[in-house]
Design a protein around this nucleic acid. Structure first.
Length: 459
DNA sequence: TCTGGGGTCCTAGGACCC
DNA sequence: TCTGGGGTCCTAGGACCC
């Protein structure tokens, strides 16, 4: 443990929902839920207004719809917009120190001791934290973040969680155990539902309870690595470094279907589409990998994986798809599958391409996975709709709630809903007043999908 | 209308090698 | 002709995180 509070953790508040409220003025101050909007969707982020009605991350969207009032916006994610805003924030963090470790789009650690000339006293880092929060809000158009600063990653993360949203907590050196010990064990990273249940059975509820247990007990309960980790964290012993640029270990794509699927040809085409995405991302990052993994989730939610390690690394969609198709044929589809996933691991940076492969990307993406299979491109007709989904025509399926659109006369807007051959759009942007709603034909030639709007006010 | 999608890390058993 | 230990690779599953 360090002697100074020199590790900072930033957690952006209800991040996806906050970006939506910034870009969609009519949603500011109102409940917003971002996540899967289909029949089997779950909530990724609920705005604080939606949390007041009980909507939570990881809850099924159906449950969130039951809890939230009419007028709540249920939006699919716009990850391009989230990524752009995240990059703005990460750039601000890198001005503080070269050692910035993003944990996700909305979270990062910063090692302030590696930065230039920071005053690392409690007063100094408190001022730094306030200034950072102001700069983030300015640079993102009002997205807020919660900041924790402490002597370790553990204490920084605990701190950022203590005063959400828009909080700032500095845990002074020496006060770690006072802060940590009253908390429930589930606040420690790595203690999830399964471990918490086993700890409860031996009478451990708080971190103080955990600290009273012997290393031997914890290793017996949770295994060698996990037991030792809990033993140390309960004592606020944490010397994990802030590591920028972690190397990727795997790349994968998966999809839950609106209805369980059994047909091997249909599933084969899904595999081809996912393999094309995985292969494309591998090539974009100049990685290739040797182990292809197929993930299956059956009708009853039982999940299994089948993998095969190839003699040479690959980034070729056709080879990934052919391997995954073989694994699927061996595993079978009895009873129906609700999810398929395709992944590649065992990555290396050396693209060991097949010298004789056709490297035309257009051919690559669309190539069959194996002889006799269907084309790889997933057409709109192959998408199976949920019973409750109002979209029933290909024209309607072009649109999804929250999507950015552009209309020839009406300008920029976003999709509120679709159905009955129509699409409902609110025409507004981040720098406009709340705008008007129009219902248009789903196949209106004047309406088209658009890029996320630029939220920066005109200079 | 129960239960997403992208990851990481760990464990354990069997094969195989020395 | 019997017993053993260590190391690495591969496969499968589980817990966990955001």
């Amino acid at each position: 443990m360090r002697r100074e509070a020199s590790i900072l953790h930033l957690d952006l508040d209800a991040f996806f929902a906050a970006v939506e409220q910034r870009d969609k003025p009519s949603l500011r101050g109102r409940p917003v839920v971002v996540g899967g909007v289909g029949g089997r969707g779950v909530v990724a982020t609920a705005s604080y207004e939606a949390r007041a009605f009980g909507a939570r991350s990881a809850m099924s969207t159906a449950e969130a719809r039951r809890r939230c009032p009419a007028g709540t916006a249920f939006l699919g994610g716009r990850f391009g917009a989230y990524r752009r805003t995240s990059e703005v924030v990460m750039a601000l963090l890198r001005e503080l120190s070269p050692l910035v470790e993003p944990a996700s789009l909305d979270e990062a650690y910063v090692d302030l001791a590696a930065g230039d000339g920071h005053d690392l006293s409690v007063d100094g880092v408190t001022a730094l934290g306030h200034e950072l929060k102001d700069r983030i809000a300015d640079a993102t158009g009002g997205v807020t973040g919660s900041v924790g600063i402490g002597t370790s990653k553990l204490m920084a993360k605990i701190g950022s969680d203590l005063d959400k949203p828009d909080g700032l907590v500095v845990v002074p050196p020496g006060s770690e155990l006072d802060v940590l010990h009253p908390l429930p064990v589930t606040r420690l990273g790595g203690v999830g539902p399964a471990t918490a249940e086993r700890l409860h059975q031996i009478g451990v509820k708080t971190v103080a309870d955990l600290a009273a247990k012997s290393l031997t007990d914890l290793v017996a309960l949770a295994g060698r690595a996990h037991g030792a980790s809990m033993y140390a964290l309960a004592r606020a012993e944490d010397d994990r470094p802030v590591v920028p640029d972690r190397e990727a270990k795997s790349v994968s794509a998966e999809e839950t279907f609106e209805r369980d699927l059994t047909d091997l040809h249909v599933l084969g085409r899904e595999i081809d589409a996912m393999a094309a995405r995985v292969g494309g991302r591998l090539r974009d990052s100049a990685y290739s990998g040797r182990t292809v993994t197929l993930k299956l989730r059956r009708y009853d939610f039982t999940t299994l994986t089948r993998s095969q390690t190839l003699p040479q690394p690959t980034d070729d969609a056709r080879q990934i798809a052919a391997t995954a198709r073989r694994l699927l044929a061996e595993a079978g589809t009895a009873g129906g599958l609700r999810l398929l996933g395709v992944g590649v691991s065992g990555l290396s940076v050396y693209a060991q391409g097949d010298l004789f492969a056709d490297d035309d990307p257009a051919v690559d993406e669309g190539a069959p996975g194996e002889v006799g299979s269907e084309p790889a491109v997933l057409t709109a007709d192959a998408v199976v709709e949920a019973p409750g989904d109002t979209a029933s025509t290909p024209a309607e399926r072009r649109w999804w709630p929250g999507q950015d659109v552009e209309h020839d006369e009406l300008g920029h807007g976003w999709v509120w809903g679709r159905g009955l051959g129509r699409v409902t759009v609110r025409f507004e942007g981040p720098t406009t007043a709340p705008g008007p709603v129009r219902t248009l034909a789903a196949d209106d030639p004047a309406l088209r999908p658009a890029d996320p709007p630029d939220w920066r006010p005109p200079v």
